[in-house]
């Protein structure tokens, strides 16, 4: 396959960026999207040019490091992570636009790499349990109803890649935060901090400069792990409940 790539190049956080055009040839349709970029970078290095910086780690769709907006879609045309996107999703001769996540809370570090530490600080604000857990306990020690376990697991699938923020026209982190809040709030292990968790995590989310939710649904469409849109409603319910309880105290 022969492709034309239009890639966002930006030297550093302070510099102005622009789209640069590159031609790549000899791309196999069995390559992953990142392997295609590796091919481009090898050529650039051989030519003595600066390779395109992009985030990647596990390359098996579970770490949440890769983060590219491909032709306007976070993680590209398939509902998966960029590392699990294969070149068979494209045609020979295609022009592909590659851009970084866009959100003021995710400033560009270089080229396609953005600083997603805002997510870490949301987790720090309450995305944990305080109970000392030690080694894995006996499975029946704390019974969890099956629907609750399923609900928690569905939300625990979030890998924190930030595609929801990138896809949202408001740069909102509601889907990410709701996945984390719902995952822990429904479980007995997470219930001691049920109210403080949602209040603090939402507070941190707002402080980081993420936008508000207008229920466009773009986040859930982009999510490679299929965190559903009603997660946001579930978190809203938790937040309103926690705020009511705080008012009584």
């Amino acid at each position: 396959m022969k492709l034309t790539l239009r890639v966002w190049r930006q030297k550093n956080a302070g510099a102005d960026g622009a789209m640069s055009t590159y031609e790549v040839d000899g791309i196999s349709q069995d390559m992953s999207f990142l392997e295609m970029l590796d091919t481009l970078n090898e050529e650039l290095i051989l030519k003595g040019e600066d390779p395109v910086a992009f985030d990647h780690d596990c390359r098996e769709g579970i770490c949440g490091a890769c983060s590219l907006v491909i032709n306007g879609d976070a993680h590209g045309p398939e509902r998966t992570t960029t590392c699990q996107l294969h070149m068979r999703s494209f045609d020979d001769g295609d022009t592909i636009d590659i851009e970084p996540w866009r959100a003021s809370a995710f400033p560009v570090v270089k080229d396609l790499v953005v600083d997603r530490s805002a997510f870490d600080r949301i987790i720090q604000a309450g995305g944990y349990i305080t109970a000392p857990t030690g080694a894995a306990p006996e499975a029946h020690a704390t019974p969890v109803p099956k629907p609750d376990a399923d609900f928690a697991f569905e939300h625990a699938e979030c890998i924190g890649c930030g595609a929801c923020v990138a896809a949202c026209p408001n740069g909102s982190a509601m889907l990410f935060t709701s996945a984390k809040v719902n995952h822990l709030n429904v479980l007995p292990q997470g219930s001691p901090e049920r109210e403080t968790r949602v209040l603090d995590m939402v507070g941190q989310m707002d402080d980081e400069g993420f936008g508000g939710c207008t229920l466009t649904g773009e986040c859930a469409t982009a999510c490679p792990k299929g965190i559903p849109l009603p997660s946001i409603a579930a978190m809203n319910k938790e937040w309103l409940r926690a705020n009511r309880k705080a008012a009584k105290r």
């Binding site: 907006v69 851009e99 866009r102 959100a103 003021s104 026209p169 408001n170 909102s172 936008g211």
Partner: peptide, 8 residues
């Protein structure tokens, strides 16, 4: 929160 639009 979204100052820069996507080119595509």
């Amino acid at each position: 929160a979204r100052p820069q639009k996507y080119v595509h």
